[in-house]
Simulated assay, not measured.
Amino acid sequence: MVIGVFLVGLMVAGIAVQYARWSIEGENIIYRRLFRNKTIPLSELAGFGQVIVVVVVIPFVHVDLYDRELKLIARLPVSLKDWPEAEARLAARLRYVVNDGSPALPKRRFVDTPKKKHVL
């Protein structure tokens, strides 16, 4: 019984991952998921960044959306072949964000913001 429930849950999770998609419609980003949709107004966003996660030699690309305080708003999946188009559409409206730190201790900044000098 427990194995059956686990396998059904795994099946629903797999369908949900395949169903996730997003688009820019007017002044909003619509993030469609299996059970609900999320609308993100572009006016609330200040920047975006790229995250590549490699799992068993397969790269998965995501777009991170940030507000003005560089707080993560959403992480949206993008196929590797669609990344240049997504980057071009987002770059027309938002600034690019880079992480000078690590995943555990991020130090995010906008690309046009100079790095802070470390004084000893």
Rank of each mutant, 00 (worst) to 15 (best):
A13E: 10
G9L: 06
S102N: 13
M11P: 04
I40V: 14
L7D: 01
F35N: 06
V17A: 11
R93I: 09
P77S: 07
V51P: 00
L72Q: 04
V78N: 01
F60L: 10
I29D: 03
A92S: 10
I3M: 13
R36H: 12
V97Y: 01
V98D: 02
K38Q: 12
V111S: 01
G14I: 06
K71I: 07
V57H: 02
D67W: 04
S23V: 12
L120M: 08
L80Q: 10
V2H: 15
I52Q: 10
L45G: 05
A13M: 07
V17N: 12
V63I: 15
A16I: 05
V8G: 12
L10P: 03
A74G: 01
F48P: 02
S23E: 11
L70S: 07
K116R: 13
I40E: 06
N28S: 09
E44V: 13
R32I: 13
K38S: 12
S43A: 15
R32M: 05
E69C: 01
R32N: 13
K71T: 15
A20G: 10
Y96I: 09
I52D: 10
L7A: 09
R89S: 15
G47T: 09
G26L: 06
Q50C: 05
W83M: 13
G47K: 00
V51M: 06
V51S: 05
R21H: 15
L72T: 15
V57Q: 11
I52L: 08
L42T: 01
R33V: 02
V17W: 15
H62M: 13
E25A: 10
R68N: 04
V8D: 05
E69Q: 10
G47R: 03
V61A: 09
